[in-house]
């Protein structure tokens, strides 16, 4: 405002205008937004509370023993055998296989894109890989069953590889989380300041030496977070294992045999619809709770790693 005009305005009016007003609308909007903010807390509490409530009859039933639950090797709720190990083992097997595929290829792709590829190539390949990440998992399951399993059986022999096996599910799951890891790692590598690389080149380092000695150590927190998020995704993945890994809890270390993962078991048993308040129903919530805490702690770990390692830097 022009100073000369200010004088023309009545002092009283100005002070009236500038006084802090009690704006009801603003208050209302703010409290609505605060409510929105707390919704996510409600959801988390809801998950813990509901899963806990439904799982309680299972955990508190007389047939349930915590030691047996965590160390038993047979899961057959119908005959009161509640060893969760076969399900956890199968989940771990598929996850480890998936990571064996996804980590080397995912990080390899990330390094190539951020350190070697031209800008143009990067801007084509990255979205292409992101398409892979957007394909529904039921399509991956179909792919595992109709392509990877027959391929494995030709490769290793029909007697070795069962038609439903954790290897096939794991490999395809690896393909599923590959773009996730590649994309997150690429972001982490790209965030390393250009000056660090220039300094290394200036000392005569080759590109790969710069990458291993300078860029990767600088981006290590981002890479670690990418891998942990990938693990958490693999543990929770459902449709691929439901279609390709097999349909019966089985304690085995052999990836060429069928076995049922935690998620696969939940979806199979609930797909047949459940009797309310039966031990089957409640035990599923027990598994879900375990699964929830497994992925939750991995996610917490990844956030912690990012924070800790970036502090170190």
């Amino acid at each position: 405002m022009i100073p000369s005009q200010t004088k023309l305005i009545d002092e009283k009016v100005t002070s009236q205008l500038l006084k802090k007003r009690n704006r009801l609308g603003e208050r209302f909007i703010e409290s609505t937004l605060v409510f929105c903010g707390f919704i996510s807390i409600f959801i988390t509490l809801g998950i813990v509370f509901e899963l806990g409530k439904e799982a309680l009859p299972f955990f508190s039933s007389t047939d349930f023993k915590l030691i047996k639950f965590l160390t038993g090797t047979t899961w057959q709720p119908q005959i009161k055998l509640f060893g969760v190990l076969p399900l956890v083992m199968a989940t771990l097997t598929t996850t480890v296989i998936a990571l064996l595929i996804a980590i080397p290829f995912g990080i390899g792709i990330a390094i190539y894109l951020s350190e070697y590829a031209s800008v143009k190539l990067r801007s084509t390949i990255k979205p292409t890989l992101e398409i892979l990440a957007g394909i529904p998992t039921v399509v991956y399951g179909y792919f595992a069953l109709s392509f990877v399993t027959p391929f494995l059986r030709v490769l290793f022999g029909k007697d070795v590889v069962e038609i439903y096996n954790t290897a096939s599910a794991g490999i395809v799951m690896g393909i599923l989380i590959l773009p996730l890891i590649a994309s997150m790692s690429e972001d982490a590598l790209a965030a390393v300041p250009r000056s660090l690389r220039e300094a290394a080149y200036g000392l005569g380092a080759t590109k790969i030496e710069t990458t291993y000695r300078v860029v990767i150590p600088a981006a290590i927190s981002g890479l670690a977070a990418a891998i942990i998020v990938g693990i958490s995704r693999a543990i929770g993945e459902t449709m691929i294992v439901a279609l390709a890994a097999g349909a019966g809890p089985k304690f085995t270390f052999n990836p060429f045999q069928g076995a049922e993962t935690m998620t696969g078991h939940i979806v199979r048993v609930s797909g047949g619809d459940l009797s309310y308040d039966s031990i089957d129903y409640n035990s599923l919530f027990g598994i879900s709770l375990l699964l929830f805490f497994m992925t939750l702690s991995l996610n917490m770990l990844s956030q912690w790693v990012v924070r800790k390692l970036s502090e170190v830097k």
């Binding site: 998950i47 919530f285 992925t295 939750l296 996610n299």
Partner: peptide
């Protein structure tokens, strides 16, 4: 933190919820 965690919860858990 909580929202980041929720983003990582497996979809089947939401199904159970």
């Amino acid at each position: 933190t909580n929202i980041n965690n929720l983003a990582g919860v497996p979809s089947i858990i939401y199904g159970m919820l």
